[in-house]
């Protein structure tokens, strides 16, 4: 069979469309037959394949853990939405941010009483019907529903006494949040929720809490994010003191989760 070597072959552009899978079946077969006899078009095909592959090769594979972290984030979002819908049935108004303490344990001072409350449960270990206290993004208390103790002894400090730290929660903390949401949504119970003490905690209280408790929930744009605190937090806070003014001198530390 005669082979062609026409540098201006009329099929050249069609070869590129063929390479990219853009031709209808019949046209594709025509080009395939032409490729059997045209060296120029074979070279065009080869070059274009290499071109496409070289560009695709500039893409990188996703990090190993990314798929799981995506699914975890979406699941948390799904549960958050369901939790907010459930909360609306019990309390009005519901502000944009609801804080959920999922920690073991959380200490709240309320006048003379100290409530030492394990995660998910009421003070006496039974489920309760009070609804979460609601806090808006600025740390102000919303209207608590009947039966929930207010934190009258904790006044919200002026802004210039805050030190702001933005942290990234660990994967374990995110899992703990998921677990908390699942408990609230799937159990059908509404647990007593407390404002995270760290929102208005003094610097000393933060350090004490960090030493004694397995996890703390912090005020977050991403509601209910939890991070594990232990000696590492103290070390990190000490380190952050060099970068975040006032963290050692602050009357209050506000920790937000990125």
């Amino acid at each position: 069979m005669e082979t062609l070597n026409n540098k201006n072959c009329e099929f050249k552009d069609n070869v590129i469309d063929y390479c990219e899978g853009l031709l209808a079946d019949e046209d594709a077969r025509t080009i395939e037959a032409h490729l059997d006899i045209c060296n120029e078009c074979k070279e065009t095909l080869r070059d274009h394949k290499a071109f496409c592959e070289a560009l695709e090769a500039c893409n990188t594979d996703i990090p190993a853990e990314l798929h799981e972290s995506i699914m975890r984030a979406v699941k948390r979002e799904s549960l958050r939405t369901r939790f907010l819908r459930a909360a609306k049935r019990y309390a009005a108004p519901v502000a944009a941010a609801i804080l959920l303490i999922v920690a073991v344990p959380a200490v709240i001072k309320n006048g003379a009483n100290e409530v030492d409350t394990p995660a998910h449960y009421s003070a006496n270990g039974d489920s309760v019907t009070e609804i979460a206290m609601v806090v808006d993004g600025k740390g102000r208390l919303g209207e608590p529903t009947e039966g929930v103790k207010t934190e009258e002894d904790h006044e919200i400090a002026p802004a210039d006494t805050w030190a702001d730290i933005v942290v990234e929660p660990s994967a374990e903390a995110q899992d703990a949040t998921l677990e908390a949401y699942q408990y609230v949504v799937e159990s059908g119970e509404v647990v007593t929720c407390y404002l995270c003490p760290i929102v208005w905690a003094s610097a000393d209280e933060v350090k004490t809490l960090a030493q004694n408790y397995a996890a703390l929930v912090v005020q977050s744009d991403d509601i209910g994010a939890v991070f594990k605190t232990d000696r590492e937090l103290l070390k990190a806070l000490a380190k952050l003191g060099q970068d975040v003014p006032n963290v050692d001198r602050a009357d209050f530390i506000r920790v937000s989760v990125k």
Binding site: V166, V167, E168, E232, L233, K235, A236, L240, K258
Partner: peptide, 10 residues
Amino acid sequence: KNRTVSLTVE
């Protein structure tokens, strides 16, 4: 808008 400090384990 934000200034972020990451916590890393030392």
